[in-house]
């Protein structure tokens, strides 16, 4: 079966801003993995490990320097932007608020790739937007300008926009960063439901190792652009590997109810540090 998404030996470097000064431009190195239909893949790693660059590669904002990315078997670079956006939806961490669009207007923008030539959205587009807003619980906010919403409300509106795209693959960038516990739980529930019912593939990029471990079928641990390990959370979240990648002491336990791994940082003792 063709995977939903497949990366084959993908490398990427940003154009160098100026030779010989600052640190070298970040790179993705020889990265290969696949996301199957109905799979949730969590991507974790320290800062500057390439998570954001990977999102930009998957959504065709940038193209690989080497290797290729296949979306349902077709090379991403040969597809039009609209046809990629029909199948891959990205949920960014936040939206800029320079122009005061309403939540409803923002969600409708998710319908653009389905008929880019249309001047106004159709009734069908509006129905899809309404349905997506119902799913994330923001239908009441449809007429609110975005800058009057809280960070958590805006994040659910942005998630609704991604769902209005009716994608096959959902790419989430720190999806729970602005959400309080209740909405984190709801977001996880919604994600699992969409994944189980609609076979939606999910790429979840997160700093939150425990969220990723809880939700994902498999985890990909990145370090400086390379894959350190890929597999079920129990095998990827290994104390020694994490300590090597993150450079701090951790312990891994099992969640009392879900039996998934839970990572704790072992905080350094201030006294010991001072005595050195």
């Amino acid at each position: 079966m063709t995977p939903l998404l497949e990366l084959r030996g993908v490398s990427f470097a940003y154009p160098s801003p100026g030779e010989g000064r600052g640190r070298a431009p970040f790179q993705i190195r020889e990265l290969s993995f696949a996301v199957e239909e109905g799979e949730i893949l969590g991507i974790i790693g320290p800062n500057a490990s390439g998570k954001t660059t990977l999102i930009r590669l998957l959504s065709r904002v940038v193209a690989p320097a080497r290797g290729e990315i296949l979306l349902e078997g077709a090379p991403l670079t040969r597809l039009t932007r609209a046809s990629v956006a029909q199948r891959v939806a990205v949920v960014p961490q936040d939206v800029p608020r320079g122009f005061p669009y309403t939540a409803g207007e923002l969600v409708l923008m998710g319908r653009f790739p389905h008929a880019p030539g249309r001047f106004f959205e159709s009734d069908e587009d509006r129905a899809a937007a309404r349905e997506a807003m119902e799913l994330t619980g923001v239908l009441d906010l449809a007429h609110e300008p975005l800058d009057r919403l809280s960070g958590g409300e805006r994040q659910r509106v942005v998630l609704a926009r991604a769902l209005a795209q009716r994608p096959r693959l959902l790419v989430l960038d720190e999806p729970t960063a602005h959400l309080d516990l209740r909405y984190q739980a709801e977001a996880v529930g919604l994600l699992r439901r969409l994944n189980a019912e609609a076979g939606l593939g999910v790429v979840l990029v997160s700093h939150d190792l425990n969220l990723a471990a809880e939700v994902s079928h498999r985890l990909l641990l990145l370090d400086r652009g390379s894959a350190v390990s890929l597999g079920p959370p129990e095998s990827v979240l290994d104390e020694q590997t994490l300590e090597a990648v993150y450079g701090c002491r951790v312990t891994v336990e099992k969640h009392p109810s879900s039996r998934r791994p839970v990572v704790h940082v072992v905080w350094p003792e201030p006294d010991m540090a001072r005595k050195g």
Partner: peptide, 8 residues
């Protein structure tokens, strides 16, 4: 970036 991701 968001515009590109939405197919523009």
């Amino acid at each position: 970036e968001a515009a590109l991701q939405l197919g523009v």
